[in-house]
Amino acid sequence: MDAMTPPEKVFRAHLEKGPFQSGVDRGRWRLASVAWPHSVISVGAADRAGAPSEYFFRFELSNYPAAAPTARLWNATGNAPLQRASWPGGRGRIQHAFNPDWKGGSCLYLPCDRYAIEGHDPWRVQHSEMIWNPKGDITQYLRIINDLLDSEDYTGLRGA
């Protein structure tokens, strides 16, 4: 019996397609694991002294892609939420998107996030380019994170 749900089948199919594989080939992101409805994906970051070259995010993907994913920073080695000192830090857009004090760090403060968009209807106009499109794939979310971690606003580890 095939126990894989339709959302998982769609997600795994998207992982094999051009948009996701193109990002893998560029070193922008890579798959670490899938344990449905979760998937851990690492996203590349610009070189900063004492900071990692990638950060791991655990995505919760129930009802993908009809529902937007939600993602949190993840310690892939310990299989646990990432400690706040190890979060990406920086100025401007970085400190808003990666805010460990918002909802206890359980999701990113981005319009493409399932939980962050709740109660933020004005974002649908103000940040329409970052709203989740159910016709798209996980790379919508990954591109936004990668753009942040590759920006001048990103300065390295957040620290204590």
Binding site: R26, R93, S128, E129, D150, S151, E152, D153
Partner: peptide, 21 residues
Amino acid sequence: GVDATEHALQICGTSTRPDLD
């Protein structure tokens, strides 16, 4: 520098910002 990375190309008359690739 930061001025460059904090701007993006958006197709005129839309909110579409094509990826750099």
